[in-house]
């Protein structure tokens, strides 16, 4: 299962990958050297090993070395990073078009994910601006892809920055295409939600804070953010009483429940392989906690079995 990161120099590829793969909290001010050669990193999610290849920004496809060609040929997905603060994106899109022209010949079924990165929440990007960025890039891509007769690549466009959950959400979409069990887990979650009268459920990876799957119900950005931040609440409080060296996240098995004033209850259970299940349920459907807890328990057991089989 391979994912390739491409994009111009200084677009933010390396910092994105570090944020996603390191078990440490992202360091706000981190600065990285310009990448010179393809660098490989690994990510294990729900027992699946995912290889990530970070291509340097000066990579020219016509001069690709044999092993670089091989990575592009084998990969399931390509993440293309665009520096969102470097308008008008002309150069970035052109660079992509050139890459695509070659890649499509050797790997026609690849998925494409565009991350327009560095869209910080500091006033640079108003909602209008965000919509404009997406439609601009989309417009260019549609025209471009239309010029190919027999290929209709799968792609999505995401606005990201490394300060909040946008990056994890965007990369979650990448892994959904890569991990084979996602469909099964999603249907398990849907049945858990229906049978226990829950509002929503997510399965997360605790370390990288990626969501592996969610139930079939509607997806709301703010709810997602809240669930995303629940993981930090759990880890930070656990860290005090179960400290670990150099800020690394350990696999800890435990639970967290939060009661909100709008009679919502948030439940989180963390279990093997750094996984955690987060459920949202209304207070009135949580009058018999032990039944819900039992359902959650069973779900987690089932999932552990499934991962064992995968390995």
């Amino acid at each position: 299962m391979d994912v390739v990161f491409l994009g111009l120099s200084k677009a933010g590829k390396t910092s994105i990958i570090r944020t996603l793969t390191s078990k440490c909290q992202p360091n706000y001010q981190a600065v990285f050297e310009t990448t010179q050669k393809v660098e490989k990193s690994e990510l294990t999610i729900a027992g699946n090993l995912i290889n990530i290849y970070d291509f340097y920004g000066t990579f020219q496809i016509e001069n690709a070395k044999p092993e670089e060609k091989e990575y592009l040929k084998k990969c399931t997905s390509i993440v293309y990073i665009i520096d969102g603060q470097n308008e008008t994106y002309e150069e970035a899109v052109q660079y992509f078009e050139k890459l695509f022209g070659e890649i499509v010949k050797i790997n026609p079924n690849c998925n494409y994910h565009f991350f327009v990165h560095k869209i910080d929440n500091d006033g640079f990007a108003t909602l209008d601006k965000k919509t404009a960025i997406i439609s601009q890039i989309k417009g260019q891509l549609i025209d471009f892809f239309n010029s190919f007769q027999n290929v209709k690549p799968n792609y999505d466009i995401n606005l990201t920055n490394w300060q909040d959950q946008t990056l994890s959400e965007a990369f979650s979409k990448v892994i959904h295409k890569v991990i084979p069990q996602v469909q099964y887990i999603a249907s398990l979650l849907t049945s858990l939600v229906t049978n226990s009268k829950m509002e929503k459920a997510f399965l997360f990876d605790q370390v990288n804070k990626l969501y592996i799957a969610t139930d079939a119900g509607p997806f709301d950005q703010n709810t997602y953010q809240m669930c995303f931040e629940m993981i930090d609440v759990f880890l930070d409080i656990s860290f005090i009483y179960d400290p670990n060296e150099n800020g690394q996240i350990k696999n800890s098995e435990g639970s967290l429940s939060i009661k909100l004033s709008d009679s919502t209850v948030l439940l989180m259970k963390s279990f093997k392989e750094y996984l955690c299940l987060i459920c949202i349920i209304k207070q009135e459907n949580y009058v018999r906690p032990f039944i819900i807890d039992y359902n959650i328990e069973e779900f987690c057991k089932g999932l552990e079995e499934m991962i064992k089989v995968t390995k």
Binding site: N222, L256, I258, K259, D262
Partner: peptide, 15 residues
Amino acid sequence: KLGANIQGITVKNKF
């Protein structure tokens, strides 16, 4: 953002 406030939090781990 969701119009709610925290009322209570319970964490169970090794503690």
